[in-house]
């Protein structure tokens, strides 16, 4: 058995590295670089009940050690995903995590019900997208909203349900506890931090949406802190993400309490980032005599 093999919310991953939703499309584009079977899993592009066109461009702005994006959940809709993307992805020998988003609670529930009949491995529920007007982060910023979505999704599927939390809140642990109490199988965090850039020549925001989500190495310490807090607040497993761009970052996330890792914006800078992190983790285990990476989860020794 590989030292990187991980069981997360009852699902077996060959390694704990998963490209994050919204940075990896539906995976195909990256087959020009490496076989998708190298990956622990794939969290696919956030998918809604109906196709969405997304926001007007420009949708990206560079920031120190990161970027803002405002894609706005452009996607072909859940029926297209189930009919055309999922069957192909399921041949790739990697865990497929459907990432879903809705404008209202019924949309979330309906998508979950549709996915329940498929062979998708897991459902990640995005209650934290900062770039859409209705739904998205609106649910994720209150414990009541987050709990209500969890409850509705839970009622319509027996698949493992992972709630993706927003960092743009006063107390993320309250939200973590709220979704745990409604039956979430796991948490993933953090989604992007809401930010802004202005072009001083035109006095216009760089993003057409005015504001967007900050990700990249700049957010890593914030993400790490929130993962640590949440992992200590709940007893369900935590998938950590936010600025992870090296295997050292992944190890830190695991020490903070994450048992699965998503890699997002690092893929913009280097499409090979996920496989480089996997290789780095293998070496880390070998060099440190670690027979199972899961042994380091939560291993930080706080003062």
């Amino acid at each position: 058995m590989s030292a990187l093999e991980t069981v997360f919310a009852g699902v077996r991953f060959k390694n704990p590295i998963v490209p994050a939703s919204g940075t990896f499309g539906y995976g195909k584009e990256f087959e020009d670089f490496y076989p998708l079977s190298r990956l622990g899993g794939i969290s696919v592009k956030g998918t809604t009940g109906s196709p969405r066109n997304g926001n007007l461009p420009p949708r990206i702005a560079e920031t120190p050690m990161g970027c803002l994006n405002s894609v706005g959940l452009q996607n072909p809709g859940i029926d297209h995903f189930i009919a055309h993307e999922l069957p192909y992805l399921k041949t790739k020998d990697t865990v497929i995590i459907a990432n879903i988003a809705g404008a209202d609670i019924e949309e979330y529930a309906l998508i979950a019900e549709k996915l329940d009949k498929t062979d998708v491995d897991m459902i990640e529920v995005n209650i934290s997208c900062p770039n859409v007007k209705a739904g998205g982060a609106a649910f994720g910023v209150t414990a009541d909203g987050a709990a209500a979505v969890t409850k509705a999704v839970r009622a319509r599927t027996t698949k493992p349900v992972m709630m993706k939390l927003s960092p743009n809140v006063t107390s993320i642990t309250d939200i973590a506890k709220a979704v745990e109490s409604e039956g979430a199988d796991a948490l993933s965090l953090i989604n992007t931090l809401l930010g802004m850039r202005i072009d001083i020549k035109t006095r216009r925001p760089v993003l057409h949406n005015n504001v967007g989500g900050l990700s990249g190495p700049a957010v890593f310490p914030v993400a790490l802190r929130m993962v640590w807090q949440c992992a200590n607040a709940v007893s369900i497993p935590v998938c950590g993400m936010g600025g992870v761009s090296s295997h050292e970052d992944a190890v830190e996330m695991m020490l903070a309490g994450a048992s699965l890792i998503q890699v997002g914006a690092a893929i913009f800078a280097d499409p090979l980032a996920p496989v480089k992190i996997i290789d780095g983790l293998e070496k880390y285990c070998t060099d440190n005599g670690i027979d199972s990476i899961s042994r380091i989860v939560g291993g930080v020794m706080p003062y």
Binding site: F33, G54, A61, P271
Partner: peptide
């Protein structure tokens, strides 16, 4: 030309307005 993220089709930021099968799509 448009501001790009990943450059390979993974992040969907470099949207441009096009028409496909009579429908406007990015």
């Amino acid at each position: 030309e448009e501001r790009m993220g990943c450059g390979v089709g993974g992040c969907l930021v470099c949207a441009c307005r096009t028409v496909k099968d009579g429908r406007e799509v990015y």
